[in-house]
């Protein structure tokens, strides 16, 4: 009798266990269905998607422009403008060249330029200019030397300068000058620094400063000033001159604000959030408050010497809410 009772109990156990597991299964299937429908809600960001890296960017007046890049799946050719005063974005005319990342962007006399880069197969040498007054892209003279990616570019005094980078086999140290009035390139001699890729530049009062980058896995420490009036390079103090400097890195962003230079984010083994401020009068560096958001290399920076916005380019296009304005002299406030 006791035995039968136990049997009944066992049957009950099995029944209830079956029901319990059925309920759990139902719940599980419900929730997984909803995951597919609703997407991932854990990220508070308005814009989500796979990371976009290596977008080219330039600033004209109070508008920052950024386009191309790689989202982890596709090379991109979309092109966006960010209005720094009114804090909104517009999708502009697509970049007309092959979709690519690691392209170089610069500004000459109110026009933007994007060229070189990598399309997933090859390094590239084609360049295009963008006229913000007409929203039109125009092909310009193709870069005449080795195609490359992760090169350095800047525009000053009516000319574009483009150099260093990675050609698929080797890092480069050559510099070239683009003259928009004749639509032609010419080689510039006299850069005494090392070959490198993914270096950074900023301009203070008509002097261009250049440094960082990586060659054969070594983060470079030499730092240079380029005077466009004489097109000559002068070597400055190394980026490890003081013991507490940790400026060396690659894939950083460089910008100028109130006549100080800045090198921010990037990578040196791991991605960085640190920002260093350069004082050209003393050739010294000072660490500023770390960038608030997740560290990342290949960020985008819009800067016009008055305001600066750093974006992490975490998205399929741009995380439009992912830009942060940088105030170098304000006390750090993690609430804002």
């Amino acid at each position: 009798m006791k035995y039968i009772y136990n049997m009944k109990e066992k049957v009950n156990h099995i029944k209830m266990l079956t029901m319990a597991s059925l309920t759990l299964c139902l719940m599980a299937s419900c929730s997984s269905d909803d995951d597919e429908d609703l997407g991932n809600w854990t990220d508070k960001s308005v814009f989500d998607g796979s990371p976009r890296s290596g977008s080219a960017y330039f600033t004209i007046g109070n508008i920052g422009y950024s386009g191309t890049g790689y989202d982890g799946e596709d090379y991109l050719s979309s092109f966006w403008a960010y209005n720094m005063d009114d804090d909104y974005w517009s999708q502009k005319a697509d970049f007309p060249g092959t979709a690519r990342n690691a392209a170089a962007g610069f500004t000459i006399s109110g026009k933007g330029y994007i060229g070189s880069g990598y399309d997933g197969l090859d390094e590239l040498s084609d360049f295009y200019s963008y006229d913000p007054s007409t929203n039109l892209w125009t092909a310009i003279a193709t870069f005449p030397s080795t195609p490359r990616r992760s090169a350095l570019a800047f525009g000053i005094n009516g000319y574009g300068y483009f150099g260093t980078g990675f050609d698929g086999d080797n890092d480069r140290k050559d510099f070239w000058k683009y003259d928009p009035s004749t639509d032609s390139w010419s080689e510039l001699v006299g850069f005494g620094g090392d070959k490198r890729r993914a270096a950074t530049t900023f301009t203070i009062n008509d002097i261009v400063y250049m440094g960082t980058g990586v060659a054969n896995g070594v983060y470079l420490l030499d730092f240079w000033a380029f005077d466009p009036a004489t097109e000559s390079w002068t070597q400055l103090l190394d980026l490890d001159e003081e013991d507490d400097y940790s400026i060396a890195r690659s894939n950083a962003v460089g910008f100028t604000l109130n006549d100080y230079g800045y090198i921010a984010t990037g990578t040196s083994g791991g991605t960085l959030r640190t920002i260093w401020e350069y004082d050209p009068s003393s050739d010294t560096w000072e660490a500023k408050t770390d960038f608030e958001r997740t560290s990342r290399q290949d960020a985008v920076v819009f800067s016009n010497n008055v305001r600066t916005f750093i974006g992490l380019g975490r998205t399929g296009s741009l995380y439009l809410d992912d830009l942060e304005e940088f105030f170098p002299y304000d006390e750090y406030d993690d609430e804002d």
Binding site: G39, N40, D43, S45, V46, F47, D48, G49, L76, S78, W89, Q91, T315, G316, S317, L318, L320
Partner: peptide, 9 residues
């Protein structure tokens, strides 16, 4: 955007 996708068209 509601699907948390990029607004790129």
């Amino acid at each position: 955007l509601q699907k948390r996708e990029s607004p790129i068209l």
